[in-house]
Amino acid sequence: MSLRNRRAPCPQRRDGGFMSKPQRYSLSRYATWDDVPVYWHDRARIATPFQTPAFLSSWYASLGQQPSVTPLIFEALETGTGRPAALWPLVLEQRGGLRTIGFADGGLMDNCAPLTGEAFPYDAGGFQDLWRSVICDLPGADLLHVDKAPATLKGRPNPFVALPWIRPSAVFRLVLRLPEDFKAYSFSRKTKFRKEQERVWRVFTRHEGAQFENVTDLSRARALFGPFQDYQKQRMAGLNVNYKLDQPVYRQFADKLLEAGLASGAVRLCVLTAQDELAGGLLVLSNGETESLVRICHAPGKWATCSPGRLVLERTLMELHAAGARETDFSIGDFDYKYGFGVQSEPLWALTVPLSWRGQPAWLGTQLRAELKKSPLVQRLRRALRNGSKSMAQDDAA
């Protein structure tokens, strides 16, 4: 099917925008989060912890203020009834010389989704009408790029994944679903892992004043989050990782996030301390149903003997479970330590749509890469390369 047919009923303008739009939904655009109607602050269905008002208000007040970023917050109402359908937290920015529209991400949003209202269409046909409404109302741009879309929204299939040109994302989420009995969960893990966690807790609690704490006071949270960020920076530098969370705009986002979400529980800072010295910490986002573990740190030196990273993670799980949480998202980083806790991988989805002739080469590139990944020959070659790398590593170890 041609690009023009897929875009109907929105004829393309020369500047890459669209002229007409369907009548089932009417759209309004907001330039700041403060302009968003109150409905979306307190009554919307929040699909994941990355769509809470605390997260989005902090994002638009920090990363959204950069000169290269133009906020595009779209509200879709059902025509005739005025019932809220969806709120799309988008931005327009320059990426690789292209004017690109996507979610308010900047490397911080692990699950990209709209906020949904009472008129949100979960059926494929209704959602395509809503999606066309958004596409038709976009300003002039070259590319629409959506990544890390979850397969479900509030426990229901996400109709986004039924759109044309959808493809698996390069990343996936790692999720832990806990039973009602936390002790049963603990004993479901491998004996070696469980015994090691018990041992490092004993080692940690030998330190004077050692404790686990779910920090609720903003001043204390800010005082602890300073060394938290420094430990993360040191760790990433040691791994030679391109680390950007220590840049001023990201530190500003983190501070605003604590201020906006700590009191309501949308943000949690869980720490291990001994006489106010930070040993390990974990930053958690929550939408009341799912907890997302987004940043973790551990102090170097003497604390290494008690594995403070894994320890603060386990103690946080216990705290969250006691508060009623049963689903925890370990975020998108594919690290070995997460699997010891029993996580399961779930796919995320991506979509790229060209909005002008300038965006066509980038779109063709993403489609070609997606098709190549499906090729049995390419899959066999990738498996052979992985197996060869493992054999070389085993030979080196021997």
Rank of each mutant, 00 (worst) to 15 (best):
A325Y: 03
A85H: 13
S292K: 11
L163R: 06
V284P: 07
A210V: 10
Y30G: 07
R24H: 08
G96L: 08
R202S: 09
Q51E: 09
A266H: 11
G340C: 06
R251D: 12
L381E: 14
P67L: 01
Y185W: 13
G209D: 09
L368Y: 03
W363G: 00
P157Q: 06
K390M: 12
T273F: 08
S188H: 12
L90K: 01
A104E: 00
N387T: 02
K256Q: 15
A86G: 05
P9E: 08
P308W: 05
A393P: 02
N214C: 14
K190V: 02
L72Q: 10
W40D: 04
L138E: 08
T205K: 08
C270D: 08
Q229E: 11
A151L: 10
I46S: 01
Q360D: 02
A254W: 03
S20V: 08
V134K: 00
A266F: 07
P164E: 09
L351K: 04
Q275H: 11
G16K: 04
A322K: 06
R380N: 12
T273V: 15
L239A: 05
Q128N: 04
L92D: 06
R202E: 08
L269G: 15
W357R: 10
W357K: 04
G80C: 10
E196Y: 09
R268C: 00
R206C: 12
G64T: 04
A44R: 01
F225Q: 00
G107Q: 02
G261H: 02
D42G: 01
A54L: 08
L368I: 07
L218I: 15
R24I: 01
A86S: 15
L72V: 07
T100I: 13
S345V: 04
V294K: 01
D276K: 00
P11D: 05
T48K: 08
S188K: 09
T316F: 13
S2T: 15
V171M: 07
L3T: 01
F55P: 02
R177L: 04
L269M: 13
L377W: 11
E277I: 03
L317K: 06
A263H: 11
R43E: 12
W349T: 01
D142E: 00
L320D: 00
G96N: 02
F330P: 02
E371F: 07
G155Q: 11
Q94I: 15
R83T: 06
L92W: 04
A86R: 13
D129N: 03
E198R: 07
E319F: 06
Q247E: 15
I101V: 14
A322Y: 00
V241W: 11
P376F: 10
E277P: 00
G155V: 13
I135W: 03
E118C: 01
D276F: 03
L87T: 06
E75T: 06
P11F: 03
E371Q: 15
R251P: 05
S133T: 12
P89S: 12
W131Y: 12
R4D: 09
M109A: 11
H41Y: 14
A119V: 07
R220Y: 09
S188D: 11
A162T: 14
